[in-house]
């Protein structure tokens, strides 16, 4: 009898281990692996998933087996054999889980340390967040972009902050996020390894535009040549005023909150900006005798001066006047009033 019990225990353990290994090797629940960190995190995650599968199957298996096997027969009112405990068993099921979490803890620490190693000559990108948009600045250039362009294979040192409330910069394909906290500068190291276009999410509830903020920006990982070409092109404004205006509209993050067909923008936090100048259009109410160009400029510089019906005051940042140079503001306003 004792030998049989031992045999069953060994057999079940072996089966569970095989199942765990199978799960660790074959079950992939993660999105694309696009950074060195992602590869490390996924190894850890898969190892944990294998262990989790073993524990899950063991506990649910014991539960189901007990329920099926140890039922009170009809008409039997008696109690079962009293067993109050078993010291050896209790020590085993205290020590083994302790051992497992120590191993996972140690492994996690190794992965954490490995994913935060500094490499030489990183590309520095300033991540600025505000309600409700990301802007990415490339120090040493004049480039400010609402899409994040990165060269593949070079470590990026993100310096992350917020102008208002807490946001959280998250690229699922990089397997990492970092909170953007006002008054603080957070550092995050990522080495992209796979070319492609991935979403930038906002992971911390930041207000009514929180969902929109997580759907508006992208990260484009590209070859170094393509990245350099983009950087050069992005630093200059196109000669055509409409194209230049469209570029500025995106550069300053306007699409996160405003819809504008010409710029492919679909934000819903603020009013749509199509046909601003049409005296019979949806913005006719706001004209109020005011020159449309002056009204648009005023709305960029001092958003509280005139509030479109159906929208709350205080949603739009009030500091665009200090962030947009006068010549660019003129181009942007011209572009907006030119929309039919």
């Amino acid at each position: 009898m004792k030998e049989r019990t031992l045999l069953v225990v060994v057999l079940v353990t072996a089966l569970l281990v095989v199942a765990g290994i199978w799960v660790a090797q074959n079950v992939n629940l993660m999105p694309a692996e696009a950074s060195t960190r992602a590869a490390l995190v996924d190894q850890l995650f898969r190892a944990m998933l294998g262990l989790a599968a073993v524990i899950f199957l063991l506990v649910e298996g014991l539960l189901l087996f007990s329920v099926l096997r140890f039922r009170q027969p009809r008409g039997d009112d008696g109690d079962a054999l009293p067993v109050h405990g078993n010291r050896a068993l209790e020590i085993v099921w205290t020590l083994i889980p302790a051992l497992i979490v120590i191993v996972i803890g140690f492994y996690s620490f190794r992965v954490l340390a490995a994913s935060e190693i500094r490499e030489e000559n990183p590309l520095v990108v300033n991540v600025r967040s505000r309600q409700f948009a990301w802007t990415f600045e490339y120090p040493g250039t004049s480039v400010i972009s609402s899409d994040l362009h990165l060269p593949v294979g070079r470590q990026v040192r993100f310096l992350i902050t917020s102008d208002d409330v807490i946001h959280s910069f998250w690229v699922p394909e990089f397997r990492v996020k970092r909170d953007a906290t006002p008054g603080q500068m957070a550092e995050l190291l990522v080495t992209p390894t796979r070319e492609g276009t991935y979403p930038v999410r906002c992971a911390e509830l930041c207000g009514v535009g929180h969902a929109a903020m997580g759907l508006s920006s992208r990260v484009i990982v590209e070859s170094d040549e393509a990245f350099q070409a983009w950087l050069t092109q992005a630093a200059a404004l196109p000669a055509d005023p409409i194209e230049a205006g469209r570029t500025l509209f995106k550069r300053y993050g306007c699409p996160a909150c405003h819809a504008l067909a010409d710029a492919g923008a679909a934000g819903v936090v603020g009013p749509a900006l199509d046909s601003l100048a049409d005296p019979n259009g949806p913005h006719a109410h706001a004209h109020g005798g005011m020159d449309i160009r002056a009204l648009v400029e005023q709305s960029v510089l001092d958003p509280s001066a005139a509030i479109a019906p159906g929208f709350a005051d205080g949603l739009m940042p009030k500091d665009f006047g200090t962030r947009i140079p006068a010549n660019e503001l003129a181009i942007l306003v011209d572009y907006l009033v030119a929309q039919k």
């Binding site: 490390l40 995190v41 979490v101 996972i104 996690s108 699922p172 397997r175 990492v176 996020k177 992971a203």
Partner: peptide, 18 residues
């Protein structure tokens, strides 16, 4: 079990607030 995943810092940096 998933609490242990969340405790593992490298995994948490991915799944936190999701």
């Amino acid at each position: 079990i998933t609490g242990v995943f969340l405790a593992a810092i490298p995994v948490d940096l991915h799944v936190h607030d999701t």
